[in-house]
Amino acid sequence: MKEGMEIGQTATIEFEVTPDMFASFEGKVVHEAYSTVSMVYHMEWVSRKIILPYLEAHEEGMGGAVSIKHIAPTTSKTRVKVKATLIELKNNIVITKTEAWNEQGLIGHGEVKQVILSKEKITQMINDSKKVAEE
């Protein structure tokens, strides 16, 4: 991992809620509102933006844990802003605090843990997992 990553660094993304972000199961929309699954995706993505400039060519980030609270609904065509703040950095473990807002206020918050590993290590872990699944 390259030098320079520091506690307090932030990243943000902004987007408009679209139908592909609605809460749905097995292809059926449950309600026309921003889903928790989409919120997790956006919180992971904004957290990843923090680590990207610091990855070496042989490294990649891998999700370690996500913990969120989805506290308010957001409907189609509503603007959402998601922010990640680096709150903990231990060796190859990066933890961010995440928050999501719409025009009315806070709609969700949580934490995302990422682990920086060599691409070789990740490939080995995946291959080991496949072998176990095949047995």
Rank of each mutant, 00 (worst) to 15 (best):
M1R: 12
E3T: 13
G4K: 03
G4H: 05
M5Y: 04
E6N: 15
I7C: 11
G8M: 09
G8Y: 09
T12A: 05
E14L: 01
F15D: 07
F15M: 13
E16L: 14
V17P: 01
V17F: 00
T18K: 15
F25S: 10
F25G: 04
E26H: 12
G27M: 05
V29T: 15
V30K: 10
H31E: 14
E32S: 12
E32T: 04
A33N: 09
A33M: 14
S35Q: 10
S38V: 02
V40A: 09
V40F: 09
V40Q: 01
V40P: 00
Y41F: 11
H42G: 02
M43W: 00
M43H: 03
M43E: 04
M43T: 05
E44F: 07
S47L: 10
R48M: 13
R48T: 12
R48A: 12
K49S: 09
K49Q: 14
K49Y: 01
I51K: 07
I51H: 04
I51D: 06
L52G: 04
P53I: 06
P53W: 02
Y54F: 15
A57S: 14
H58F: 07
G61T: 00
M62H: 01
G63N: 12
G64R: 00
G64N: 00
G64S: 08
S67E: 13
I68W: 07
I68H: 05
H70C: 02
I71K: 13
P73Q: 04
T74L: 01
T75L: 13
K77G: 09
T78R: 05
R79F: 07
R79M: 11
V80E: 05
K81A: 03
K81F: 02
K83A: 03
K83Y: 00
L86S: 06
I87K: 14
E88V: 03
K90P: 04
N91T: 08
N91A: 14
N92C: 05
I93V: 15
I95Y: 02
I95T: 15
I95H: 01
T98M: 03
T98D: 11
E99Q: 10
A100T: 03
A100H: 00
N102Q: 08
E103C: 03
E103P: 01
Q104R: 14
Q104W: 06
G105S: 08
G105C: 05
L106R: 07
L106K: 13
L106V: 05
I107R: 00
I107C: 03
G108N: 08
V112I: 13
K113P: 04
V115W: 00
V115K: 05
V115T: 09
L117Q: 06
S118C: 01
E120Y: 03
E120M: 03
M125L: 14
M125E: 11
I126N: 08
N127P: 03
N127Y: 02
N127F: 02
D128G: 10
D128S: 13
S129E: 05
S129Y: 10
K130H: 13
K131F: 08
V132P: 00
E134T: 10
E134Y: 02
E135R: 13
E135Q: 12
